[in-house]
């Protein structure tokens, strides 16, 4: 549904996006994760035919972003970084205006507007000027605009930036509800929690380049290595007596017990447990060491810095 190959953009001497290659299938949500100025917005602007790529190509729903810009724009819903609302209009007027822009007929406009206002809980305020809305309501209305013409592709640029936690949570819930089998979504964000909550795949972008991409699990494995397990023992830890199965390494120990790195948990964990029990250890619990997306992100960054 969204395909790019070596997508690049240069502004004068500055290379804002450098060889971005992504492939997002229908029904998938990709989070483009990166700090401010990493090239997320530029990538989104190229995907919506606002900026012409200096190199490479991109196709949305089968249409080339350079050759068929109008077609691309009619198939994509874009939530821009700034909500872009006309503050003197009411929500009803605003959605009606954009409905006309997307050439929806009158009945469809009214039906879709009513549905979306209801879905985002703005119906009660629909006839008030948008200028009177809270930040969260504005963002939800902007999301409603994005969905008005039922686009198969959604590009959401920093959907919760500069929002209070409560509003951000509401908007995240709304976005989570937008997932469907045939809708493809790209979320640009620097918010790790948001990316982890909403995305199936994550692409970490740094200085215009995709450093790595994949599911959270794939990224964890590739950046932080095999999974680690903390074992809690009742009778204390005596390392000398333990016979470790293949693919298991002792990486540390705490007062409660040892920590092991396991290459293939499915095969090795039962063997590890057996060895522990055979060594006389009384196992109370065995738990995978949790790694947050933040650790994954920082690992990716430190790799870049080391390089």
């Amino acid at each position: 549904m969204i395909q790019t190959e070596d997508l690049s953009k240069q502004f004068g001497d500055f290379l804002a996006v450098d060889g971005v290659t992504i492939n997002v299938q229908p029904g998938q949500v990709l989070a483009l994760l990166g700090q401010n100025g990493a090239g997320k917005t530029t990538t989104v602007r190229m995907l919506t035919s606002l900026l012409a790529p200096t190199r490479g190509w991109a196709r949305l729903a089968g249409y080339d972003v350079v050759r068929e810009p109008t077609r691309v724009r009619s198939l994509v819903g874009v939530l821009t970084e700034q909500h872009g609302l006309y503050l003197r209009m009411t929500a009803v007027e605003y959605l009606d205006f954009y409905g006309k822009v997307f050439r929806l007929d009158s009945a469809t406009r009214q039906k879709r507007s009513a549905e979306l206002l209801d879905y985002f809980g703005i119906t009660e305020f629909a006839r008030r000027p948008i200028g009177q809305y809270s930040k969260g309501m504005r963002q939800k209305l902007a999301l409603a605009r994005t969905l008005l013409h039922e686009p198969p592709v959604l590009l959401l640029d920093e959907p919760t930036s500069a929002m209070d936690p409560e509003s951000a949570r509401l908007v995240r819930q709304a976005i989570a509800g937008l997932r469907s089998a045939n809708r493809t979504i790209i979320i640009c964000t620097h918010n790790l929690v948001e990316a982890e909550l909403l995305a199936d795949k994550i692409a970490i972008i740094y200085r215009g380049r995709i450093l790595t991409q994949g599911t959270v699990e794939e990224l964890r494995r590739s950046l932080l290595g095999p999974a680690e397990y903390n074992v809690r023992l009742r009778n204390g830890w005596r390392p000398g007596t333990l016979n470790l199965p293949p693919g298991v390494t002792l990486t540390g120990e705490t007062d409660a017990g040892p920590r092991f790195r396991v290459e293939d948990p499915l095969a090795a964990n039962p063997e590890l447990l057996k060895s522990l029990i055979a060594s006389g250890a009384e196992v109370v619990a065995m738990q995978e060491v949790p790694h947050t997306l933040e650790e994954i992100y920082l690992a990716a960054m430190s790799k870049v810095n080391d390089a």
Partner: peptide, 13 residues
């Protein structure tokens, strides 16, 4: 005011 971008990403000529 940030209102131009939604208009520019619409299918208007």
């Amino acid at each position: 005011r940030g209102t131009i971008e939604p208009l520019l990403v619409s299918p208007l000529e």
